[in-house]
Computed example of a mutant assay.
Amino acid sequence: MIQFKALLLKELKEAFRDKRALMVALSMGFLMPVVIVAMSKFMIKQAVETPAIYVKFTGAEYAPKMVKQLKDANILAFADVPESDKKLWDKRSVEVIIPETFAQDLQEGKRIDVILRADYSEKSLAAPLRRIEREVRNYSRSIGYKRLLVRGIDIKILNPVQLQEQDTSQPSSNAMIISLMLGLYLLMGAFVSGQSIAVDASAGERERNVLEMLLCQPVKTQNIVLAKLISSALIATLSISIMLSLTTIAVGFVDLSKIGASFSLDFPTVGALMISLVPLCFLAAALQLFVGFQAKTFKEAQSTVAMLVMVPTMIPLALMFIESKPDWIEWVPVSGQSLIMEDLFKGLPIEWATLATTTLLTFVAVTGLVMAMAKRLQSEKVIQSLS
């Protein structure tokens, strides 16, 4: 035990001595809350506000009432565009073409083809084009309703079944913007924060011949691996703890009431999040150390370990496209923690049995990796980067 404490103290000193690696390790914890707040405010603004859309009308004089309805919806003529935005909207070139026969066809009850011309592949035009289409459809629907009323027909016959929606979700479930970003960043933080420490403790120490000197000492190889593992995992745990603490404060600066949502991280939620994320920090550290020991050079280890960041990114995204999830997905490391965090952010009760199973399987995987590394480090080829 004394030897293990000495090894752990040595690894922690090495981790905190390298200020640059420590800064990189903790950067996500400090920067991500700022990113979450900035992106949340931007997305809420886009969802709530209706900024002006400037359209090049052709034949506006033939349909003054429709143009007025569009104007009431803040869809304005290109002549009204401010000078500062004129270049932008000229490049977007959204055009509405109204036929000359609009009034006559409307009087005769014929179908009228109004043309909306724009570059539909331009992502920035997706929301403006939807707004224009919606307003034109509303104008067309209002004319159809008036025609039915003139003929003495009740417009209610068009909607014989009325669906009443009752949302049973918690108010926190509506804060999906923050939940998705925070959940993804927490998973990434577990894998990214200890990355530089793990690579330096494995491939870095081997290149500096420190690893060879350690293995020559009368200590168990398993203790050496465990000390490196705990050191890297503690840095990752510290990073996600900072991220959770700062996010709790930062979310208070986001007005979620505009979208009818609320978001808070109380002590039980934070505790459950830490219980689910700490095993991931150990798993990430174990994977990174394993790859670092397998790599022949420090540069190769950095490149290979960087690819591990894709794991926490791709798995949650893949789960979104699985409609019928099998039960075992809730127990598998990474996917299990991702689903648990999703339920926590929705305000659902914690399923402690699932959390315990996922945690146990994660530590089983960590134990397997530690034993594999301890065995590999007994080979001279691994120590000398010969295989």
Results as ranks from 00 to 15, higher is better:
85 D>Y: 10
89 W>V: 07
90 D>E: 15
91 K>A: 15
92 R>M: 14
92 R>P: 08
92 R>Y: 15
93 S>M: 10
94 V>D: 06
96 V>C: 04
97 I>G: 02
100 E>H: 02
100 E>Y: 02
102 F>K: 07
102 F>V: 11
103 A>G: 00
105 D>K: 12
105 D>T: 02
106 L>S: 13
106 L>E: 14
106 L>F: 07
108 E>Y: 00
112 I>M: 09
114 V>H: 06
115 I>T: 14
119 D>G: 07
120 Y>D: 12
120 Y>V: 12
121 S>L: 08
122 E>L: 14
123 K>E: 13
124 S>Q: 06
128 P>E: 04
133 E>D: 10
134 R>N: 13
135 E>G: 04
135 E>M: 05
135 E>D: 07
135 E>I: 05
137 R>D: 12
138 N>E: 12
138 N>D: 11
141 R>G: 13
141 R>H: 13
144 G>T: 11
145 Y>T: 03
146 K>P: 01
147 R>P: 02
147 R>T: 03
149 L>A: 08
150 V>P: 01
150 V>A: 11
150 V>M: 07
151 R>M: 05
153 I>Y: 12
154 D>M: 00
156 K>I: 00
157 I>M: 13
161 V>W: 00
162 Q>H: 14
163 L>A: 14
163 L>F: 12
164 Q>H: 12
165 E>I: 10
167 D>Y: 02
167 D>Q: 03
168 T>Q: 10
169 S>M: 01
171 P>E: 01
172 S>M: 11
175 A>G: 01
177 I>H: 01
178 I>A: 08
178 I>T: 09
180 L>I: 10
180 L>G: 08
182 L>E: 04
184 L>K: 02
184 L>S: 09
187 L>C: 07
189 G>E: 05
191 F>L: 03
192 V>N: 09
193 S>D: 06
194 G>C: 02
195 Q>K: 13
197 I>S: 06
197 I>L: 06
197 I>T: 13
198 A>L: 03
201 A>R: 06
203 A>V: 11
203 A>E: 12
204 G>Y: 05
208 R>A: 14
210 V>Q: 14
210 V>E: 15
211 L>G: 12
211 L>T: 15
213 M>R: 13
213 M>K: 13
213 M>W: 10
214 L>W: 05
214 L>P: 09
214 L>K: 07
217 Q>K: 09
219 V>P: 01
219 V>E: 03
